[in-house]
Design a protein around this nucleic acid. Structure first.
Lengths: 208, 208
DNA sequence: GCAGTATGAATGAACG
DNA sequence: CGTTCATTCATACTGC
């Protein structure tokens, strides 16, 4: 990062900070995370102190809900890249050309080309191809979700490691051989909040 | 304030923010306040739940059901191990310690330690370190996200909405020095915490 | 304006 | 180890 992040603490040097958009975005996220943490902690505290059930707290993942500040402004984090129609066209065309392997260099080139038509990064392109391939394949394999296809396993059998296993996405009654994992610990909830705080601290340490 | 706070959004101008020291200080305070709020909420929550646990010992089991129900998906089994935040914390810390080579024995130890906080296997730990290292490296190789271009886009472009931005995931977590947060009177009331959140929100609306 | 779907992004696992 | 696949999650979008 080229931004000035000197932590002078009022000692000397420039009294101006320059932030890139990335940094700004990070800041936004960090603050949003804090806000969300607080909201959830408050909710939990209320629930506990009033002996209410904790059901309803959704704590699956980092859930950064842009909150409405008291003044009515909101912390909005623009977060997802969306390809412009032009970019999409080009991407689709390249994808259709069949070169199923977008090499590293290819990605760079494509990114530069698409950069002519809007903000984009190599990661975006990379992700796009990843997703495109995956979903294209999935569509082929599952044209009708409730039709039992003849289970023709491809010759390329998936090898499983020690405790790895492949399970079809649908909840047919295949494997109950769950050995030692995948039953998530019951201590999610509060400990998860603690984790969030830790994450948030990492974010802030970048800036402060 | 004279600082440039234009929020790019693909519209134009520099993708850089300039902040005065005053603004920086405000921001710092705001984040600190959030952090302190969280810490205090955590403490309060701990106190309360500990009391309840000692008194009735009834929360322990009741924890599981609502959370599993609210995760939205089958309780049957996860196909994929997902580290709990606590586990993640520990993993990150070990990773940051720099011992780039998690030896076989090390893996075993770590697995045992993490086992205290949820189901996990050595393979999980091994994979995690593999992935972590690989992705960390990849991020380093792409540190040139913005060749800031003054964006001379024609307004008659057929974009229906402003483009989003790619946000690079957080990386290079600096040494985990918990920041110098505000340490305020510990015997603050719950309602006062709520007030602080409101205040903090106001602060943030000033910046974002 | 809420439910439902499409899709960008994150990540555990596997392959060469 | 670097790369790729598969799965999941969160959000943008769209219809009601």
């Amino acid at each position: 990062m080229e931004a000035e992040t000197s932590n002078g603490g009022g000692i000397g040097g420039l009294y101006v900070k320059v932030m890139t958009d990335d940094q700004m975005e990070l800041l936004r996220q960090q603050i949003s995370v804090y806000a969300t943490i607080c909201e959830q902690l408050v909710e939990m505290h209320k629930a506990v102190t009033t002996q209410q059930d904790l059901a309803g707290l959704r704590l699956g993942n980092l859930y950064c809900d842009p909150l409405m500040a008291c003044s009515g402004h909101k912390i909005t984090a623009r977060q997802r890249w969306t390809p412009t129609p032009l970019q999409l066209q080009i991407l689709e065309r390249i994808f259709d050309e069949g070169n199923g392997t977008p090499s590293k260099q290819k990605i760079k080139d494509i990114t530069i080309e698409l950069g002519q038509h809007g903000q984009i990064s190599e990661t975006n392109v990379y992700n796009w191809f990843q997703n495109r391939r995956a979903r294209s394949k999935r569509k082929q394999l599952t044209p009708a979700p409730n039709v039992v296809e003849p289970e023709v396993e491809s010759p390329k059998e998936k090898k499983t490691r020690a405790e790895g296993f492949q399970v079809q996405p649908y909840e047919n009654s295949s494997p109950h051989r769950i050995k030692d994992m995948y039953i998530q610990s019951p201590d999610i909830g509060f400990d998860q909040l603690l984790g969030k705080i830790e994450v948030a601290s990492c974010y802030s340490s970048y800036f402060l």
